[in-house]
Amino acid sequence: MAEINFTKLLVHLVVLVDVVLLHVAYATYFERKVIGHMQMRMGPTRVGPMGLLQPIADGIKLFFKEDIIPAAADRPLFYAAPIICLVAMLSCLAVLPFDPNHVLADLNIGLIFIFAMSSLASYGVVLAGWASNSKYSFLGGMRSMSQVISYEIAMGLSLVGVMMMTGSLNLGQIVAAQAASPFGIYAIPQFIGFFVFVVSMLAETNRVPFDLPEAETELVAGYCTEYSGIRFSLFFMAEYIGMIVMASIGTICFLGGWNGPFTVPYVPFFWFLLKIYAIMFFFFWVRATLPRYRYDQLMDLGWKFLIPLALANILLTGLMKTVLE
């Protein structure tokens, strides 16, 4: 009995990781196409029809590139950093409900678990920065660390409103409660929370306009300056999985998860995937539009604006809840 469950779990795990990594690969293609067209370019067109094999080619190239380790690097940490990043991000996937029947681990503290794991990912980044023994990497790592800590608070607080309305931290139950709510999605009653979530989502994943940890113009490539080949691609994958995880949280907590205006037969995860890709498109769209924030502006925005706003949202939600009941 236990053994059967174990093999089933393993198969589920392998399929999940593979599917997500494929999505990561094609998210890069999607990003390059979207940003290309927004800048009136074409994006990848050469490898395969419409450049569709470009991610595969990139993967092969990165895999076979030389793995350079700086002489002054702290080797064990240098090796461990990208793995910490990737593992932390991959383990977030376990609690995400893609449709009512597909969730690897149906935890009661799903949301908190994701926070815990994404805060760990910042360790990978900061250790990469330190272990590389290069000033660019180090500055990138430090920036990333302070940014992630600051915005995690705002993000956690923005989701408290959702927790209050649902009364649960189980992601499946959040979606179910949302379907039963008058609007069907929490983005409307929780619009302040949604706004705070979206901004801190961008900051948490180190995306433009908050991409200070890897600001090309100042820091070469930030914390992954000294990384090359497959180790660099692990960081890259971690970043994109992070984006997918954040998009999933947004979908689950604010946009109604797998529920849609009508049910699509045979593809229960259709709406979930669509919403994730809508949010991913938003990531790329913002990247194509906005310039980078200055560091002190970033901190001001996080501490002086988003956190008070999220706290006000909690207060408002509590008030509304007591008034309505």
Partner: peptide, 10 residues
Amino acid sequence: TLRRMFSKPV
């Protein structure tokens, strides 16, 4: 940027 996305690439 959204409008530019649907214009012809140069």
